[in-house]
């Protein structure tokens, strides 16, 4: 086994142990732990929080080209700390992982980058805002961002403009993940208009659409008995949006949470059980059975929809594999969105 694979296997011990997806269920010893009633300080909190074990800047976008073809786009930067404090340069304890993907109705292109913190190869600064790994970067301020990524298969260059406020999930950004109280800090900017150019193997395409940025950090967001999640970010045609997730537990139960976002950005959090998501149909991709059609409900908001993957093969062949791709919404509400499914081993 080569060094890189081992590093990944040990850093992100998804395969090594059943402690949960990407080590998120690991012990939080020495790291800071999210506490209720947070007060955010922007722009500082757009930047990294090195004393927390794990953190991400996560953009997903639903795009269309001039001929109406639907595309999905992902740009993600993960920060993972080996220790809450440590040396500088190569010895800095921060590790960075970038994932970029483009999904078409027929193809799914994935790329991954890894980097050490401390040497300038990857990082995030809050003011001015810049998040980068190698040549991939997202810069500007939270209301107007330039975002690029490249791989042997694709490149993209996007401009995003926010058309609404930041949205805080759970209890003002304190998002509880289990009955035992595991939690993260979690806010989003779901109101981006996005446009730019996708360069794919079969040509360059000018695209426009909507994008959704998630910011989340924690040290132990999953409980020991939680092994993965199904996460939905849905944008309805009437202007409302909904974030909902379902955490899978080893006892066969689920822990759910949802945020209803009114068109003006007003957020309403729903506790465990209000939001339900049930798989209707699975598809075999990468030798796994993945649910690609879901029955999603939030009765208190009259949501009773079917969520379909645009490309059921949107499997992320990254060192920690998962499913992430654009979806179509039909039923009580219509619209589009993104679906992420982890823990399908």
């Amino acid at each position: 086994m080569n060094a890189k694979a081992l590093v990944i296997a040990l850093l992100l011990p998804l395969m090594a142990n059943a402690q949960g997806f990407a080590g998120l269920g690991s012990d939080s010893a020495g790291f800071s732990v999210p506490a209720p009633n947070p007060t955010f300080d922007f722009p500082r909190d757009h930047g990294p929080h090195d004393d927390y074990r794990i953190e991400w800047w996560y953009v997903t976008a639903n795009l269309r080209s001039a001929d109406g073809t639907a595309y999905g786009l992902q740009w993600t930067l993960f920060r993972s700390a080996l220790a809450p404090t440590g040396g500088a340069g190569w010895a800095a304890p921060q590790l960075w992982m970038g994932h970029a993907a483009v999904t078409t109705p027929t193809d799914h292109y994935v790329s991954e980058r890894l980097a050490r913190g401390g040497i300038g190869q990857a990082g995030v600064t809050a003011d001015p805002f810049s998040a980068w790994i190698d040549d991939w970067q997202m810069t500007g301020d939270m209301d107007a961002l330039q975002m690029t990524a490249s791989s042997p298969d694709f490149t993209y260059d996007m401009t995003m403009t926010a058309d609404g406020p930041l949205v805080f999930h759970g209890d003002n950004g304190f998002s509880v993940k289990s009955a035992a109280g595991q939690a993260s800090y979690y806010y989003s900017q779901p109101f981006y208009d996005i446009s730019g150019t996708l360069s794919l193997p079969d040509g360059d395409f000018a695209v426009t659409g909507t994008a959704w940025l998630d910011r989340e950090w924690s040290s132990q967001p999953l409980a020991d008995n939680q092994t993965g999640w199904d996460w939905f970010s849905l944008s309805f045609d009437d202007g409302a949006k909904m974030m909902g997730f379902r955490l899978q537990q080893t006892d066969g139960q689920n822990y759910t949470s949802a945020t209803w976002i009114a068109p003006d950005g007003t957020a309403t959090a729903f506790p465990n059980g209000a939001f339900t998501a049930a798989p209707l149909m699975t598809h075999t991709t990468a030798n796994r059975d993945i649910p690609v059609r879901w029955h999603v409900q939030l009765p208190e908001k009259g949501v009773n929809v079917i969520v379909d993957a645009i490309n059921p093969d949107a499997w992320m062949t990254t060192s920690v594999p998962y499913w992430e791709g654009p979806v179509r919404v039909t039923g009580s509400h219509t619209g589009h969105g993104y679906l992420e499914m982890t823990g399908y081993e």
Partner: peptide, 28 residues
């Protein structure tokens, strides 16, 4: 000295056992 995170697969037959402290390795 190599950087295991960026080295192409197959570089450095470093046999890190499951118990090896990779974190210690990376922080020098």
């Amino acid at each position: 000295g190599i950087d295991p995170l960026t080295a192409p697969a197959g570089i450095g037959p470093v046999r890190l056992t499951q118990g090896a402290d990779i974190a210690d390795f990376l922080v020098g």
